[in-house]
Design a protein around this nucleic acid. Structure first.
Length: 366
DNA sequence: CAAATTACTTTAGAGCGACC
DNA sequence: GGTCGCTCTAAAGTAATTTG
């Protein structure tokens, strides 16, 4: 069990091929540490066309050479459409084509640049018709995201964003793509159930399960047992078992270590939920909480927020997991928060009152 | 000041296939 | 026909930031 845990830590911490969208509500860069902190890393890669934005598991940046690997998803979307797309075809014939034409003529553009973007149906997921069409065309691979300003996506025709060499490469057939993606999931996760492996890239569950079984039969995945975990589990054959793991990282809420909550609970005994959607009074820890990985355990969690105006990294709450030394954890966490603050260009760190680790952390920072 | 983005969790119930 | 387990859907709750 311990070895498996260690393998998972190593794999997951050191390798991330699909990075979540960079900035979120708090304007904290949310991808976990993948080398020295570098605020401009992703934007540079995006500008230089090394990565592109796509719905890999959620809104993600993926290596540009993977375009043919995602074409099966694009083609599938195009064939099946969405509810809203079928509705629009009936109610507003020619609308989709008009959106397409506008992007071709005037792109890159955002929803509100459309002649008739339609009305938004509420906050958050209340997409206007124009947004539905742009998003659908984006998922079909006809459009690509040329850039983002703040939260806003600027769409352009794929021809102007994705280099021809990738765009014109032959589609990797769906089954082959699933296999490749499942093996990648296994590499990143260290060990996983079929459900977990399939969920990493949000593949279709039934087909995914079938392929996990097939890969195991072929020896491309190795069946393993983990004590106390009564479920068929799989590892990538190339998984190594390091003697020790000395990780120290603040994990964003979508880091591979915590992405599939079931696994996180099994392997780290760490119950984690994002609370941005929970009414404030009902939140247990805070609005935007980062788990803290130390050694090979998840030892604490901190609610952090970048107060850019004041130049302060706010830490409203800090919470210790059971069985860990508060002084040691606070010391290491203080170092990590210092790096985070520097990365974000914030000169100061202010610790609030919430949580049993708040006082030790404040002491460690002082 | 409005616009833009949006990552999840929980619960309940329906639908479906496998199996006895 | 009944049960089980799995899958899918829907609904509601929610906040921060910068730009124009």
């Amino acid at each position: 069990m311990r070895h498996v845990r260690k393998a998972i830590d190593t794999m997951a911490v050191l390798q991330i091929d699909s990075v979540n969208v960079v900035e979120r509500a708090h304007q904290l860069t949310i991808f976990s540490r993948i080398g020295p902190y570098d605020p401009d890393l992703l934007w540079r890669a995006l500008r230089q066309r090394e990565i592109f934005e796509y719905w890999a598991h959620m809104a993600s940046f993926v290596p540009i050479a993977d375009w043919p690997l995602w074409k099966h998803r694009m083609e599938h979307q195009k064939q099946h459409g969405w509810h809203s797309i079928h509705r629009l075809r009936k109610e507003a014939p020619g609308y989709i084509e008009s959106v397409q034409r506008q992007v071709a003529e005037r792109g890159p553009l955002t929803v509100s640049d459309l002649e008739e973007p339609g009305e938004r149906r509420g906050p958050w997921w209340g997409w206007a018709d124009g947004k539905h069409v742009l998003e659908w065309l984006f998922e079909c691979g006809d459009l690509a995201v040329a850039e983002r300003r703040n939260f806003t996506r600027y769409y352009d025709i794929a021809e102007r964003v994705i280099p021809a060499v990738h765009r014109e490469a032959p589609t990797v057939p769906a089954e082959e793509a699933y296999r490749t993606l499942l093996l990648r999931s296994a590499e990143r996760m260290g060990v996983g159930s079929a459900k977990g492996l399939v969920d990493y890239f949000r593949l279709p569950i039934t087909e995914g399960r079938r392929l996990v079984a097939a890969l195991a039969k072929e020896g491309a995945l190795v069946p393993v047992e983990v004590a106390g975990w009564d479920e068929p589990l799989f590892m990538h054959p190339g998984t190594r078992f390091p003697r020790s793991v000395e990780a120290r990282a603040l994990l964003n809420p979508f880091d591979p270590i915590v992405w599939f909550r079931e696994h996180t609970e099994r392997l780290y005994d760490f119950h984690y939920r994002v609370e941005i959607y929970v009414p404030a009074p009902k939140r247990n820890y805070g609005y935007y909480v980062f788990p803290f990985l130390l050694g090979d355990r998840l030892v604490a969690r901190v609610d952090i927020k970048a107060d850019r105006k004041a130049g302060v990294l706010q830490v409203p709450g800090a919470f210790l997991e059971d069985g860990h030394d508060p002084k040691r954890v606070a010391r290491e966490l203080a170092i990590e928060l210092g790096e985070m603050a520097r990365w974000l260009g914030l000169g100061d760190i202010a610790v609030g009152k919430k949580g049993d680790l708040a006082a030790p952390l404040a002491a460690a920072l002082a």
